[in-house]
Design a protein around this nucleic acid. Structure first.
Lengths: 329, 329
DNA sequence: AGTACACCTGTTAAGGTTAACACACAGGAC
DNA sequence: GTCCTGTGTGTTAACCTTAACAGGTGTACT
């Protein structure tokens, strides 16, 4: 009835009526029912963000970017975590679809099962945007950082410092971003005529279950194994900063110095990276931008009458040189 | 109609009918509408978690504990972030209330405005459980770690190592947990007849806005100021591990050694703490347990017919001694 | 035969909201 | 007087699901 007009502030309502409605509403501590509203209006002004590892500051920053754009446009963000398995991914997609989220942003690792369900959901007409996840679909946009170039730059940096034996910590076949970083690294080696020594490439050892998000634990373990080699690498490229921190820890506990004995490059430029000892050379992803862009693309999809042309945006990364690669001060 | 019975698996449905329904459902890629369902059933099997800083691994671990319990019982967890202001807190509460979440777990800092709205929501009959947030209400349960004792233990540890000038990094009047840690610390000093030197207590300097979650930036800044004192402290108790990392960074960039020149104790025992250099002595909170317990208390409230008696659980912390306080290997 | 019960299916209404429409009145323009 | 427009209010139906009930068939037991 007239109440709706008051609550939503559209249509004509006389001042006195409005006051009366508001006062009664206050008195009975009325809250409008978003379920009924969504049901009727066929839109909920709600967006779901599916994150993998929320312990990684990278995910936090991503969420921040997404939220910034969404709240400015009046949307609510609900975050779902899916850290263990494709099953959790699917559960998150289903829940968001069931609750009629207006759109979904997905930043978890790809998996066969997950992608299949994602395709279904996309085809049902729910706008979907991926962040750094391998899933191509004509109805879903994709944003990602240029990990190929990032990996390339990181490695080129090490090569330019004279390193010839470069270890890779945190290799993973199932994570696209990680894989691209690795590929970029290999390309750089090839370009400089350096051999790719497989004994220097360590990852999660097959015992990788779905989480596979690289942890400091993993960095620590891999680095320890590298140090046990007859001729350990003199430089390390880690799949991300968290992994790099683990590697640094392992190097130090072996009594070696960074960068004099072993140089380390990370990836992501998490806030902590500038405060490690030594401060970590790393590849900065435009994390915040990625989140904002994903949200913008999603809103474009949500608010346009018919499905817009698919967008795939690849943002540049940037090498940030700190003291973990060049001795200093 | 019969469809509902098939979808929900209750009531009698013949095999053939069930198959027919399922096949049609698949064909039209039917998804049940959680809005309509929630509207009709007056429950959504959905719980909201309001987190402050999701970049802090502490929040991540908390969420993990909460989720573990909820999913096992068939509930869905939606996370909302409120990192900047009391306004965001309120927005999150409102959204969750509007969407008829069955219950809300709140782990953000207390604020006058936020608590007022929380009281309203609680009194509307929505189950609420607080984690480490100062908000007492007969209808809301509270779980927290014993920060008073934690702060006491950390400081006692430093005193037992012979320290007499102990700095406190990250003081904040507006954060209860932080405040308790500080109080515990002061009590320990008093018990040992040591003076409380206010020049050694640094926080966010009044320029604290709502976020106030202590960052490594803050730890770095405070520590730098402490080092500029005529007689800097020889030991530091940081409000949390992230802050401690910042402090460590500042100490090192001043060319001092840990723990020989300055000992450092953190708080939380985040995964990274064992991988810093040197590994960080810290107070371990039963983070995962806190999350689980909060979820259990919430479910109790949700599922009991009439409001149960208020529970307030205080879990013990534990000192984890590592090399940032006692020189070693 | 009559009664009880298990099994299966359909009808109705309600949950809270809003789009669409209908109506009513006032004031101004012609 | 008629028409138009702006303002204010009310009615209806629909969004999709499910609780409650009603009704049907068939089998088993007394």
């Amino acid at each position: 009835m007239t109440v709706s007009r008051v609550i939503n502030g559209n249509g004509y309502v006389s001042h006195s009526t409005r006051e009366r409605v508001l006062s009664v509403a206050r008195e009975m501590s009325y809250r409008r029912n978003a379920l009924a509203r969504g049901l009727k209006r066929q839109q909920t002004e709600t967006v779901g963000l599916v994150l993998g590892d929320i312990a990684n500051p990278f995910g936090a920053e991503l969420a921040r970017g997404v939220r910034e754009v969404l709240t400015a446009r009046g949307y609510t963000l609900f975050m779902c975590v899916s850290e263990r398995s494709a099953r959790e991914d699917i559960a998150a997609f289903d829940t968001l679809a069931d609750h009629r989220a207006d759109g979904i942003i997905v930043a978890t690792r790809a998996s066969k099962l997950g992608n299949d369900r994602l395709a279904e959901i996309t085809e049902m007409g729910i706008p979907v945007v991926l962040i750094g996840r391998e899933f191509r679909h004509p109805l879903a946009d994709l944003v990602t950082a240029d990990h190929l170039r990032g990996g390339h730059e990181a490695t080129t940096h090490l090569i330019s410092l004279g390193h010839r034996r470069i270890g890779f910590v945190g290799a993973s076949l199932s994570n696209v971003s990680g894989l691209k970083r690795f590929q970029g690294s290999v390309e750089a080696l090839r370009e400089h005529g350096l051999p790719v020594d497989e004994t220097l490439i360590l990852g999660s050892d097959g015992r990788e279950q779905m989480p596979g998000y690289a942890t400091e634990e993993m960095g620590f373990d891999c680095m320890k194994r590298l140090l046990q080699l007859r001729e350990p690498p003199r430089a390390i490229f880690a799949r991300n900063d968290i992994t790099a921190l683990g590697a640094i820890s392992a190097i130090k506990s072996a009594g070696l110095r960074i960068p004099q004995d072993i140089a380390v490059v990370g990836y992501d430029d998490i806030p902590l990276a500038r405060h490690t000892s030594p401060p970590l050379t790393t590849i900065r992803q435009p994390t915040h931008e990625l989140g904002k862009l994903a949200a913008q693309l999603l809103l474009r999809r949500i608010e346009s009458r018919e499905p817009p042309r698919r967008e795939e945006k690849i943002l540049d990364c940037e090498l940030v040189v700190r003291e973990s690669t060049i001795g200093a001060a």
